[in-house]
């Protein structure tokens, strides 16, 4: 017999953070509304990051008006690969990854060709706000296309694996890496079928993976082990994530990073309402860690001290 109260009390014991509590006690409390544009508009995020010396993918062009779409073909002629993103898109919606050209047509990351007309249609939709929250008119960013580190070659099916770190009051509290699968069609969203792999904060070693709701140890497409991997540049990744607190002014933020083959860690986007699946990937709740930090008498510390604290306390087993 499934007893909801029993399940609830078990989840409570491991400190699982639910949506209501995330919103009521963390997002509403620590994320001032006025700072939301800093993360909701990727253009502002990028500008702030550059000013703060945090590495981000290089910006090639910004599209604000319908007519600029047609001019884009010439503007981008110099670049072989690039990514088009709606500035207010969420959860990877509306992102278009171009890996090359064939005559007049673009080749998408999936290998499919896309005519100029289709390309313009997609951009025009995005500009009209199809992918933005609330359907407001949007602008688009065209930026450097990340070439992922060889490290991930064996544990990823197409697409770019990204690293999500939850940063609370500047302390990195939990991390995971999201590995695209054949099922997720190269996308790195867990609910689309990507794998979430929990990362031990102190060491940067992957500990356990979750695909859908089942724990796994090997990548289903490449058969390669996904646990026990040591994420390269882990110190830099933590340092970048921790500094995003000063950057945004948001107390509870999800930092999405990628590892580029040439440029190392780059910040892809920030999220003021990061999802909760990271807890499944880590097999642990966020709540105990968040409360540990809330209980600190002197929690305003420089980034290095915060990282040191996190590495001391937040183990994933």
């Amino acid at each position: 017999m499934w007893n909801p109260f029993e399940v609830a009390s078990r989840l409570k014991r491991i400190g699982l953070l639910g949506l209501n509590r995330r919103n009521a006690d963390y997002v509403l409390k620590y994320n001032p509304r006025k700072f939301y544009p800093r993360v909701d508009d990727k253009l502002i995020t990028k500008q702030l990051a550059i000013a703060a010396g945090i590495p981000v993918p290089e910006l090639y062009a910004v599209v604000r008006e319908e007519h600029e779409i047609r001019e884009l073909h010439d503007k981008l002629a110099a670049y072989e690969k690039f990514v088009v993103k709606p500035a207010h898109g969420s959860g990877g919606d509306g992102i278009l990854v171009i890996h090359g050209r064939r005559g007049q047509r673009y080749r998408r990351a999936s290998g499919l060709l896309m005519s100029r007309e289709d390309f313009e249609h997609h951009l025009s939709n995005a500009l009209s706000g199809l992918f933005s929250l609330g359907g407001h008119p949007d602008h688009l960013l065209v930026e450097y296309c990340v070439e992922f580190d060889d490290f991930f070659e064996r544990v990823s099916f197409r697409g770019v694996p990204d690293i999500r770190i939850i940063v609370f009051l500047g302390y990195p509290v939990m991390a995971m890496i999201r590995l695209p699968t054949r099922l997720s069609d190269g996308k790195a969203n867990l609910h689309q079928g990507a794998i979430g792999v929990g990362i031990d904060i102190p060491t940067g070693i992957t500990k356990r993976g979750v695909w859908g709701s089942e724990p796994i140890k090997e990548h289903p497409d490449t058969e390669h082990s996904i646990v026990g991997l040591r994420i390269p540049h882990w110190d830099t990744l933590l340092s970048i994530a921790a500094r995003c607190y000063e950057l945004t002014g948001l107390g509870y933020v999800g930092v999405d990073l990628v590892l580029d083959k040439h440029q190392g860690p780059l910040v892809l986007e920030l999220n003021a309402r990061p999802g909760l699946s990271i807890q499944i990937a880590n097999g642990a709740g966020l709540l105990h860690r968040l409360k540990t930090i809330e209980a600190l008498p002197d929690r305003e510390r420089p980034p290095e001290a915060r990282i040191a604290f996190a590495r001391e306390h937040f183990h994933t087993v």
Binding site: A8, G18, H288
Partner: peptide, 26 residues
Amino acid sequence: IGRYSGYRLTELFRFRALARPEASQS
């Protein structure tokens, strides 16, 4: 309810993997 911060019924299902008795504490 605006200050209700308990779990949603569907979350009990979503995070059921974490609620298995052997799931240990971090």
